[in-house]
Amino acid sequence: MSEAAIAPLLGSENRGAIVTTERWPVRALLIGVAVVFLLLFLLLPLLAVLVEAFRAGLGAYFRAITEPDALAAVRLTLLVAAIAVPANIVFGLAAAWAIAKFEFKGKSILNSLIDLPFSVSPVIAGLIYVLLFGAQGYFGPYLQSQGIQIVFALPGIVLATIFVTVPFVARELVPLMQEQGTQDEEASLSLGASGWKTFFRVTLPNVKWALLYGVILCNARAMGEFGAVSVVSGHIRGKTNTMPLHVEILYNEYNFAAAFAVASLLALLALVTLFIKVALEWRYAEQISASRRH
């Protein structure tokens, strides 16, 4: 009865429509914009990388990625990520824990300091380490006399990468841990669990998805970082060239096919991390939604 009464007002085709749903032209436009944007700015460049990588044929592709310098770059990139990411996890957890669960002086300073690498240009981050540890830097001469090389060597690259990736894990964890508060930990302690058991069985599981997400982002950045690493690396082929630096050198030598071949490897690494994330989210969908809802 009420429907019949309303129908003349709405016009027949709108009967039963939900008020918060847009009309189809609006919907089509919005979806279209999003799809075109994704195609143009994400998928197309990725395809271009692959097309260029295989332009000179499969043989050239495999030669480019198995060449000793390229393999050295891959090894270095993985090594740097393998050091920087765990360092970031430890720092991120410690910082997020401190900020979320304790009150102390200078807390807001620590909180904004974490964001510093986001606001500082990576080139400057690299220069800082050259200034500190370079041959003409503050500690350079002393370190040299001890036979320790930091700049233009692995330690410098790792330091620069850690600097640039500092915010990733902490930024994911801080808001979540703040929201969760300390009651779960208090409950765990009162039930007799030690501090470590509480951390591993309550705190860590409570933040594991945010932690994983932070690790994935951090890893992607650690492997892809260019600016800061470029300044401290010294570009020694086969020794201090990471993958992004290797790509640049090849490109500057007009060796486009090889440059894109190595670039495709980097892109592949990015896709693999993305795939892992999606797979985990799919596998543990129930747990994730449970941890969000409760």
Binding site: Q183, A187, S190, G192, V202, A290, H294
Partner: peptide, 14 residues
């Protein structure tokens, strides 16, 4: 060895 019950229960969600 006290049994604590919180207002918001503080159950372990996972």
């Amino acid at each position: 060895n006290v049994g604590l019950v919180f207002q918001n229960y503080a159950l372990f969600r996972h």
